[in-house]
Computed example of a mutant assay.
Amino acid sequence: MPDFRDFNFKLPVIEKLMYGDRTLTPAFSIDECLRAKGIPDPQLYAFDNDLAHTVLDEAHAHFEALEISEELLATLDTLVIDGGLQVYYECSPVWDGEDDLFDVGSLDDLDLLPNLRRISGARDCGLGIPFKEEILAARDIVSD
């Protein structure tokens, strides 16, 4: 199974496959995960424990260990970078999108997506690295 180098790059991939296409199953739910631990309200839990601007350990561990096959990765032709992604809620239930918590730090993981042709939203948010249009263009990836 391919290994991602940048956790924040992996998250939009998970978004597309798990919450969009529903081909990466089962879908992870932070609500269900925390309820199983006796925590009924993830948002209140995050606020009460000063975790509003962090990725919860339970979500980080799950998504970090999540294996995605080369076959599934090859089905990706589009990624969306947007502060409202479901996967971001699952990681940080009260995140407000006003910081760099989910900014992508590297484009090295593009190698894992051989059929990627479009990244939507990359110019507006989500790339903590300088936007490298020439890297995308060299791979025939359009960004908007």
Rank of each mutant, 00 (worst) to 15 (best):
V55R: 02
E67R: 10
P42G: 09
L101Q: 03
R35A: 13
D48W: 03
Y88P: 09
C91K: 00
L73P: 09
A74G: 09
G121N: 11
Y88H: 04
D103H: 09
V87W: 03
I81F: 10
F7C: 03
H62V: 06
P12T: 02
G128E: 00
D21L: 14
K37P: 04
L112S: 10
E58A: 11
D108I: 05
W95H: 14
F28V: 02
R123H: 07
I119A: 09
L101G: 04
K132D: 09
L66N: 06
V104F: 10
I129E: 14
N8S: 06
D100F: 14
I14H: 09
V87T: 07
Q86G: 15
G83S: 15
R139N: 08
R35H: 12
A61S: 06
E70C: 10
F9I: 08
N8I: 08
T23V: 11
E32Q: 08
M1G: 10
L72I: 04
L127N: 00
A36L: 10
A74N: 02
I39A: 00
K10I: 07
S29H: 01
H60T: 13
F102W: 01
L44G: 15
K132Q: 10
D96L: 14
A122V: 11
Y88R: 12
A27F: 06
G121R: 13
